[in-house]
Structures are given as structure tokens and as C-alpha cells.
């Protein structure tokens, strides 16, 4: 029977929604026993949140002053030690999980399965390759521990209402001092988080400047939406790097995605193909974005976007 350990992602004493999505994925494996591990300086508050996720049986807290920041080199030996009692170890396919989980896998002497989009059994999964141009079915060996990351856009967060037990775990692992946290600069925008927002408005290269990009922020604010950007817009300096949506940026699945002045390179489309409704505004009627858009509007974005904002009241 599968006994699955999920590594919680958290920051500022709050659990990241990616954790509940990993629980969703694990819950699709029949008969799985699901535990969540919180590595922190003091994980009590995060553990209490994790305990409420439906489907979680036990939450483990591993408290250590060295866990103040999520450094993969420091966390990996601890995760590997806790993993001894499990058949599967899952983490989210966010930059946190992508950084950490392969290091855990190598310490355990096993490979890793990246970006699970569906489980067809405890050792059989589907995942995207080639920027989502192909979906492969992969079988993992049953005699080895399976380390994997979960493609968060493929799963809804598991519901609240659970009441898992919380236990402190003692981990003896020697932790390195060769890696040190210096600083983090997060743009405090007051807007919804791009990764989890139900609505997203994104701008592309056609915006032409960071000043012009303001109309994207303005429309987003009208819709209560998060702001995203294509790689071209980020490379050109119109938008910050953490707004990039696509193969190498964020993979998102909002209810509504509004693509403004984005041509729709395959690398961008791979980041939005799980969106419920895609709206595209572009002056080029032949742009590939219209092949995937549910609603398309051809025209000058500098006229249409303010007009749309006004029409939304």
C-alpha cells in the first residue's frame, strides 16, 4: 500500500496552496495513506493549517533553526531522513519543489518523476514533455521509493475539513553550512497571487513599454485579477520576472485568462492550457493565440483594453 509523504511548502507562517494540490494528487492513488511534513523553525501554525486538509492522516513537524529559509541543501537531508518510512515522497512543481525534490531523490539514490498531471495507479503516471506538446505515460519501479513533483495546475486544492493528528518528528541529519540565505525581493503588489488567482490578465510584447503595461494592471484591478506576462514582455523589461507565464515560468489554471497582445508561442500556451476560459485580444488575426482562445477579439489593444475596462463598469 502506498504511504505518501508530502513536503509542505510555506512562507511567513502560512501554508502555500500547492500543498493541498499535492494532497489532491496523492488522494487519487487508491488506498494511499497521506502524511504532510512541515520543515520550519517552528512549524506549529503551518501544521495546524495542513491538518485541516481533507485526506491527510498525519502532519509531522520538523523544527530546526536552520529551516528558517527553504534552502534545498539544508532541507534535503532532513526530508531524506523522514522519507525512510514512506513508499512515495511528493513535492509541488513550484520553484520550491523543483529546487528541493531532485536533491532529495539523489540522496535516496533514486530518480525523480517531474510534473505529475495524473496518477493512473501508485506507480503509473502521466506527465507533459516538450513544453506540453506530448503527454507521456510513465511506469516507475515498485521496488524503489518514488520521488516526484506534482504539476499544481492539474489539480484543485483538496478541500478543508480534515482533522489530522500533528506530531513532532526528530530528525538526525548533518546539515551543511556551505549555502546561506542572503535576501529576497518580492514585489508586494496587493494583487492576487498569479499561481492561484481565479482570474489572470497577461500582457505581451505588443504592449511596447513598461509604461504601456500599466493598462494591463488597470484592467486586472478592474477584474480583481492577477497580472501575468509573456516571456517576450519580461525579456524586454516591461514586466517583472515572477510574472512570466509559460514553459519556463509559471504554469497556471485560472477560471479566466485574458491574453493581451500575446501572439501565443507554444512555450506560452503550455503555461495556460488548463485555464477554463481563454480570452485573446490581438491585432493579428492570424496569431496562434486565437487557435486556443475561447473568445477572440481582433483589434488594437490600446483602444480595446481601456474600452473593455470601461464596459465592465
Amino acid at each position: 500500500m502506498a504511504k505518501i509523504l508530502i513536503v509542505a511548502e510555506h512562507a511567513g507562517g502560512k501554508l502555500n496552496p500547492s500543498t493541498a494540490k499535492c494532497v489532491s494528487c496523492a488522494s487519487t492513488i487508491s488506498g494511499a495513506e497521506i502524511h504532510v511534513a512541515v520543515f520550519a523553525t517552528d512549524g506549529a501554525a503551518v501544521a495546524a493549517e495542513a491538518a485541516k486538509i481533507q485526506g491527510v492522516k498525519t502532519v509531522l513537524t520538523v523544527n530546526n533553526a536552520a529551516n528558517a529559509e527553504p534552502l534545498a541543501a539544508v532541507l534535503a537531508p532532513q526530508v531524506a531522513a523522514v522519507a525512510a518510512n514512506y513508499t512515495h515522497v511528493f513535492g509541488p512543481s513550484t520553484t520550491f519543489g523543483k529546487d528541493l525534490m531532485p536533491r532529495v531523490a539523489a540522496l535516496l539514490g533514486v530518480g525523480q518523476l517531474s510534473d505529475i498531471m495524473a496518477a493512473e495507479g501508485a506507480y503509473k503516471f502521466r506527465r507533459p514533455v516538450y513544453a506540453g506538446n506530448a503527454i507521456i505515460t510513465v511506469e516507475a519501479p515498485q521496488d524503489k521509493k518514488l520521488v516526484a513533483t506534482v504539476r499544481t495546475a492539474s489539480f484543485q486544492a483538496a478541500a478543508q475539513g480534515g482533522s489530522a493528528g500533528v506530531e513532532a518528528a526528530n530528525v538526525s541529519a548533518s546539515l551543511p553550512s556551505h549555502t546561506r540565505f542572503v535576501s529576497r525581493s518580492a514585489a508586494a503588489t496587493g494583487r492576487p497571487d498569479l499561481q492561484t488567482a481565479p482570474r489572470v490578465v497577461s500582457g505581451g510584447r505588443a504592449l511596447g513599454s513598461s509604461d504601456n503595461f500599466k493598462i494591463i494592471f488597470s484592467l486586472a484591478d478592474k477584474l480583481g485579477a492577477a497580472v501575468g506576462a509573456s516571456r517576450a514582455a519580461v525579456d524586454a523589461g516591461y514586466a517583472a520576472n515572477d510574472l512570466q507565464v509559460g514553459q519556463t515560468g509559471k504554469i497556471i489554471a485560472p477560471e479566466l485568462y485574458v491574453a493581451v497582445g500575446i501572439s501565443g508561442a507554444i512555450q506560452h500556451l503550455t503555461g495556460i492550457k488548463d485555464a477554463r476560459t481563454i480570452v485573446a485580444i490581438n491585432k493579428d488575426a492570424e496569431a496562434p493565440i486565437f487557435e486556443v482562445a475561447d473568445i477572440g477579439l481582433v483589434g488594437d489593444l490600446f483602444t480595446l483594453v481601456p474600452e473593455l475596462e470601461k464596459a465592465l463598469g
Binding site: V110, G111, L113, P128, G132, N133, A134, I135, I136, T137, V138, E139, A140, P141, K144, K273, I278, F290, E291, V292, A293, D294, I295, G296, L297, V298, G299, L304, E307, L308, A311
Partner: peptide, 22 residues
């Protein structure tokens, strides 16, 4: 360690509609 048993194209999104104006 892993065995890829199948490659499939991604599920296509159904064709949407074009609108004339805002």
C-alpha cells in the same frame, strides 16, 4: 529507472468564437 509506455498529443482545446467588439 522509468519506463515510458506511451506518447500522446495533448488534448486539444475546442475551437472558440471570435467576437466583433468589446
Amino acid at each position: 529507472q522509468f519506463k515510458t509506455t506511451k506518447y500522446e498529443p495533448p488534448a486539444a482545446r475546442s475551437k472558440g468564437v471570435m467576437v466583433k467588439d468589446v
